[in-house]
Simulated scan of single mutants.
Amino acid sequence: MERKSIDQIKRRKPSGAAVIRPELTKALFRALFEEWAQCGYGAVSLERVAARAGAGKAAIYRRWPSKLEFVCEAIQRVGLTLSDFDDHGSLGADINAYLRTTRAAFRHPLARKIIPDVVAERMRTPEIAVTLNSLAAARRAFGSRMLDRAIARKELQPALDRELALDLLISPLYMRMIVHSKNTAMAEIDRQAIAIEAAIKAC
Rank of each mutant, 00 (worst) to 15 (best):
M1V: 12
K4T: 07
K4N: 07
I6C: 04
D7W: 06
Q8F: 05
R11G: 13
S15H: 13
S15V: 14
G16I: 10
V19R: 12
V19A: 09
R21N: 15
T25P: 09
K26C: 10
A27Y: 00
A27I: 00
R30M: 09
E34Y: 06
C39R: 12
G40M: 11
V44L: 10
E47N: 12
E47I: 11
E47G: 12
A50Y: 13
A51E: 02
A51M: 04
A55G: 08
G56M: 10
A58F: 05
A59C: 12
A59G: 01
Y61V: 10
R62C: 00
R62M: 01
R62A: 12
R63K: 03
P65G: 04
S66D: 05
S66H: 02
L68C: 03
L68T: 08
E69H: 11
F70M: 13
C72S: 02
C72K: 03
E73D: 13
E73F: 03
E73A: 09
A74I: 00
I75M: 04
I75E: 05
Q76C: 05
Q76E: 11
V78A: 14
G79D: 04
L80R: 10
T81M: 07
L82A: 06
L82C: 04
L82M: 05
S83W: 01
S83F: 04
D86V: 08
H88N: 09
S90F: 02
G92D: 11
A93K: 09
I95D: 12
I95G: 00
N96W: 01
N96P: 02
A97Y: 00
A97Q: 00
A97L: 13
A97P: 02
Y98F: 11
Y98H: 10
T101A: 11
T101V: 03
R103K: 10
A104M: 06
A105N: 10
R107P: 06
P109V: 14
P109N: 14
L110R: 14
A111T: 15
A111M: 15
A111I: 15
A111G: 13
K113E: 14
I115R: 06
I115D: 06
A120V: 08
E121K: 08
R124M: 10
T125M: 08
P126D: 04
P126C: 05
P126Y: 02
I128F: 08
I128Q: 08
I128N: 07
L132I: 12
A137T: 01
A137E: 13
A138P: 05
R139Y: 03
R140W: 14
R140V: 00
A141S: 11
G143C: 01
D148S: 05
R149D: 07
Q157N: 15
Q157I: 09
E163F: 03
L166M: 09
L168I: 01
L168F: 06
I170R: 12
P172Q: 08
Y174I: 02
Y174E: 04
R176M: 01
M177V: 02
I178D: 06
V179S: 07
V179C: 07
V179G: 04
V179I: 09
H180P: 05
H180S: 14
K182I: 01
K182D: 04
N183E: 15
N183P: 09
A185I: 00
A185V: 05
A185N: 01
E188V: 00
E188R: 00
E188T: 03
R191Q: 09
R191S: 06
Q192F: 10
I194Y: 02
A195N: 04
I200E: 00
I200N: 04
